Amino acid sequence: MFHFWKFPFWRSNRLSPILDQEQEKQQEIEIEESELDTKTSFENMMSAQPSQQQLLVSKIQLMTPVEKALVLKSIQTSIENYLEVESEFISLKSFDTCLQDLISTMTEPTNFLDKKFLFYCYGLILRESLEKVNVKMYLIALLEMSHQVACQREGIALAVGLASSSHWEVAWAVLEQFGQKRIMTFGRKSVASKVMHDIYWKWASSTALLCYGQMAIHAKNSSLPWVDKIMSKMVYYFNYSKYDEVLKSSFLSATVKIAIMLKRENSGKGYMFKQIPNLIDCILIIFQKEPQEFFDSYFQQKSLQVISTLSSLQPGLSTKVKTKVLRICFESLFVLPATEMLAGNLSGQDIPPGIESLHNKTMENLDQLLQSFLSENETMEELQFLLQSGS
């Protein structure tokens, strides 16, 4: 059994070099609010209410195409009206009658509503619309909304993912069109021409990453070839887009969802995933960009879990890829100061809680990844090469 050095978890305001105040403030909010787990807090809340969820679905199924269209338009208007509202919750009294009637299935009339619920309803209606509703038109309208706010990006992705479970090829085509029209065009514009719409479309690629992650969660076993295509798109957008904390958060969130989906009931067993090494390369790039003076997020812990899951899929990782993973992980984690040394570097500040727990989980994940790599080597020569190259 391998024993590793301890390192600290410490959140710093110094998130990335040379940030203007507005961007720095935005990224600090992103770090605080982002949850790099399989589900957001809103999705966890919804999954805890299966009976009410089913009531909502049943009500949607009884709606006529005209009624669905009216509610979808009402949701679009509500999202646009409350986009700039800082609070994530909106009073139900703000909505029109048809939308209030639908929402009343899940909450009391006097309550406030999580903004993401609007996107959730939007996606459910599209999922349950198998005819006479222009799903493509409504998905395009959704993606044309602002991508500036984190809950907006997550909400758009949630709706796209739900719709894709019944309209996979339509959702894929819409994302392709969105990538060409907004992400690629924005990337090709000169710096001067970007100024006006910079914030509006700046994180559109991060929305696309979140959408692909949600599509993977809602994919069926028959969609495994599409999951490989999803990985390819994620790799492309990651490498094409300007790197920042928002992109990092969105990429990891999407990769976690893919890993969970493939691990779920061994759904990826027997399929040859060609894009796994490229996806892992992107994770390693982020690893190398992480601060070496402190432990800034849960990124390393989650990434190690993702790599471990992906490495178990076919065709498996080559010895060259495994040694690269170990080398970068070791170099990134072992240069960090020991946890007990942190107190002397904080000038009297308290050490944030959870350091030891995060440290233990991360080291356990690294140890499990290493043990997994070692067990997969078929010969002593391969094992020796792996150990020598990773050290």
Rank of each mutant, 00 (worst) to 15 (best):
S34W: 15
L36Y: 01
V66N: 12
S166K: 10
I60K: 05
Y243L: 13
Q300P: 03
S312W: 13
D198Y: 11
F119H: 09
L162W: 14
L313F: 06
K132E: 00
F42Q: 07
E80A: 12
I276T: 07
K269H: 10
M341G: 02
W5G: 08
D350P: 00
V135M: 09
K93A: 09
E154S: 03
S166T: 01
Q76G: 09
N134L: 08
L310R: 04
P291N: 05
L369M: 00
H167V: 03
H147A: 08
S267W: 14
M106R: 11
S146G: 04
I156N: 06
N365Q: 02
Q349L: 12
S223M: 13
T379G: 09
K229L: 13
Y236W: 15
C282S: 06
A254R: 01
V306H: 01
L333K: 00
V71I: 06
S249Q: 11
A216E: 05
L310M: 09
Q52D: 03
K302R: 11
V227R: 06
F238M: 14
W203D: 09
Q148Y: 12
F112P: 01
H218P: 03
A173S: 03
L383S: 00
K194D: 06
F89M: 14
S94C: 12
S347K: 15
M234S: 04
N377A: 03
S249K: 07
Y237K: 04
N278Y: 15
Q275T: 02
L383D: 00
L124D: 01
E382H: 09
L19M: 04
F334C: 13
M196A: 07
Q371N: 03
R182C: 15
H359C: 08
P352F: 15
K39M: 14
V195T: 08
Q76K: 06
D244H: 08
F89L: 13
D228R: 10
R188K: 14
M261K: 15
Y298H: 11
S389W: 08
L383H: 11
N365R: 11
F42A: 05
A171D: 04
Q61P: 08
S164A: 05
P277C: 08
K320I: 08
W226M: 07
Q314T: 15
P50T: 03
H359I: 00
M215R: 01
L175I: 14
Y120W: 15
L369D: 01
E378P: 13
L342W: 09
P17L: 15
E154Q: 03
T207E: 07
I103N: 01
Q314V: 15
I140K: 08
I79Q: 14
E265M: 03
M46K: 03
